[in-house]
Amino acid sequence: MSAGVLFDAPGPRTIRRHRIYTVVAGLAVLAVLAWIVGSLYDDGQFAYDKWEVFLTPKYLQVLLVDGLLNTLKMAALAILFAAVVGFALGVGKMSEHRFVRWPSWLVVEFFRAIPVLLLMVFAWYFIGINSESASFWAVVIALALYNGAVLAEVLRAGVNAVPKGQREAAYAVGLRKTQVMNIVLLPQAVKIMLPSIISQCIVALKDTALGQYVLAPGLTRVYKQIYLEFDNRIPTMIVVAGLYIAVNLLLTILATYAQKKFVGEKNPIDLTRAGNMDGGQNTGGAA
């Protein structure tokens, strides 16, 4: 339902009423914005010396290379491993053998139900909290396991979304079980899954910020280094959040593009369901 059906084309009185609402709402929004900006200004948060660091090439390099690049590296590695884990678990969940299906199901449900942060702390202590690379890998491993479990669900939903006739036709021409999966179902499923996989990248990227708790490198560490040196916690916070938002919006645009190109208007995989805990049973919605 588009928003348009929820209300009539306004008549002259309604237009007048809406104009009043618009003015009042606009003033309210402006007041809130003015209050936020004003308070920050009064506190001296917009002073030049608090922002100077972001105009200094040397520090920009630290922010982008030590910060953003490390964060992206963690997210990319995590998604790469998550794809491997998700593929293995997803295929395992669709197996015809009970002794493969059940463990896969158990592993997927386990990693989807626990917080990434809990997993991260455990991985951190497990690898050894004293080495520098431990926190980096703790973040990567935790994100890979969690996102892998979600991608396993996405894979299952993607394969199920391939029209039934494809599988039947493949069996009819004499392909074996593995061939049906590899040659016919998976290539089509991957196309359907692409937008959901990109959305999962956004989740992984956002969750890299949790690395702060295990002292991981990336934007959150650079954030701390910068504000400790320049006493500009709030400006740094705004810049770091802006970087995250910018990358995420780029990924969103990419996901929308992939959706239009490969899938069409309606996504047959309902990610909210893939993220839901009812696991195996498909409760309507996604066909």
Partner: peptide
């Protein structure tokens, strides 16, 4: 699109 950690920090 903002990480929850940053919302908390705010």
């Amino acid at each position: 699109n903002t990480p929850l950690v940053i919302v908390f920090a705010f």
